[in-house]
Amino acid sequence: MFPRVILKGTMIKKSQQKKRTSPSNYKERFFVLDTQDLKYSERRPGKRPMLKGCIELSRIKCVEIVCADVPIPCSYKYPFQVFHDSHYLYIFAPDNDCRQRWVRALKEETKHNNLVAKYHPNFWMEGRWRCCHQSEKLATGCRIYNPEACASKKPLPLLPDPETELPDPGRQMVIALQDYTPMGDDDLPLQKDQQYLLVNGSHSDWWSVQNDKGDIGFVPSTYVAEKIGSNFDRFEWYNKHVNRGEAEDLLMKEGKEGAFMVRDSRQAGVYTVSVFTKAPGSNGEKNPRVKHYQIRQSDDGQGAFYLAEKYLFCTIPELIHYHQHNAAGLITRLRHPVSQGARCSLETADPSEGLGSQKIAHPLHSSCTNWPPSQT
């Protein structure tokens, strides 16, 4: 009896890098899911497709979306993962609906397999998991895996609870640090640099915000910054009780170009960016050291923050986000946030805490996922 075809379509796959020397590349492939295998082929004009890979469904241990916090380097921007044997296959769909169809179908076909108890919601990159920073590729995941769940099935966001809303709920505004594309019906899209009303910010990972049309939905808390206020504890780069010497020790120990942190200066209400660099000195030789930059505010009455005067920002998270992508006067770009203590929890807290009695399941991101992205 021939296997029944369930889905087929063109997507992009990332090389599985089964060997340490394998290149990291992205190639368009034609995928076919049937009741026995997941196959992908290279289409060649005028010729029969060439089979490039085949994964028996019985070998699959986990299928889940990837909560990417880095720029996607290919034209399709919606990744999901297939963990089989001891390998991770990253597949990129052209849109969220397509991704959800494939994830849902693959989960349905593999839900009775010998599955993992926990999975990694983010990418394996540069020798570590971006979600929990473990450096062993086959390390146990940091998020509980639910083979029955699909990210698209989530309840609508709650209206603000009178007992938990902000002291001044009418006018607390946040600014979007980055565009955000909803991954479910209860999310709200964000447009970079736009302002939103903060409806409820009591949960560490997910905040409820309202746009100028009155629509309310969830957004990752690290995608936005309070227009007024200085609560940076949710950002991995912030180290409140670290002095200059301790910062230098931590960053020198990290030893990565662009490793950085933001810490309190001796002067109350002032913050310093400390960053590690190996940039050559005056003699042309590498000179590992830590540079310190005080975050200043303009004196034009606007109170904008800056490290280099030409680049002014309404909030400190906006400033950090910009310099994670542009050196712009600094000795190096801010590449790798460093924390004195681990901020990652192994399991995501329930976003319903502090939002009333109704349960809200929002499984897309863990508190290990950091934004803004750090590029390499």
Results as ranks from 00 to 15, higher is better:
Val5Ser: 04
Lys14Glu: 10
Lys14Phe: 10
Asn25Phe: 12
Tyr26Phe: 15
Glu28Phe: 11
Glu28Met: 12
Arg29Gly: 08
Arg29Met: 05
Thr35Pro: 00
Pro45Tyr: 04
Arg48Leu: 01
Pro49Tyr: 01
Ile55Ser: 06
Lys61Asn: 10
Val63Ile: 11
Ile65Val: 05
Pro73Arg: 04
Cys74Glu: 09
His84Trp: 07
Cys98Arg: 12
Arg101His: 08
Arg101Lys: 14
Lys107Thr: 00
Lys107Gln: 05
Glu108Gln: 11
Thr110Val: 15
Lys111Gly: 00
Asn114Gly: 08
Asn114Tyr: 08
Leu115Trp: 03
Val116Cys: 09
Asn122Ser: 13
Cys132His: 02
His133Val: 02
Thr140Gln: 05
Arg143Ala: 12
Ser152Lys: 11
Ser152Glu: 15
Lys154Leu: 13
Thr164His: 09
Glu165Met: 07
Pro167Thr: 11
Pro167Ser: 09
Gly170Ala: 09
Val174Arg: 07
Asp187Arg: 02
Lys192Phe: 00
Gln195Leu: 15
Leu198Glu: 06
Asn200Ser: 15
Trp207His: 14
Ser208Asp: 12
Gln210Thr: 08
Pro220His: 02
Asp233Ile: 07
Trp237Ile: 00
Asn239Asp: 03
Lys240Cys: 06
Lys240Arg: 08
Arg244Lys: 11
Gly245Val: 05
Gly245Ala: 09
Glu257Trp: 01
Gly258Lys: 02
Met261His: 04
Gln267Asp: 14
Lys286Asn: 05
Arg289Tyr: 05
Lys291Leu: 08
Gly303His: 07
Ala304Gly: 10
Leu307Cys: 08
Lys310Arg: 10
Thr315Lys: 01
Ile320Gln: 02
Gln324Phe: 02
Gln324Asp: 10
Ala327Leu: 04
Arg333Ile: 15
Arg333Met: 13
Leu346Asp: 09
Leu346Cys: 05
Thr348Leu: 06
Asp350Val: 08
Ser357His: 07
Lys359Met: 02
His362Gln: 11
Thr369Asp: 15
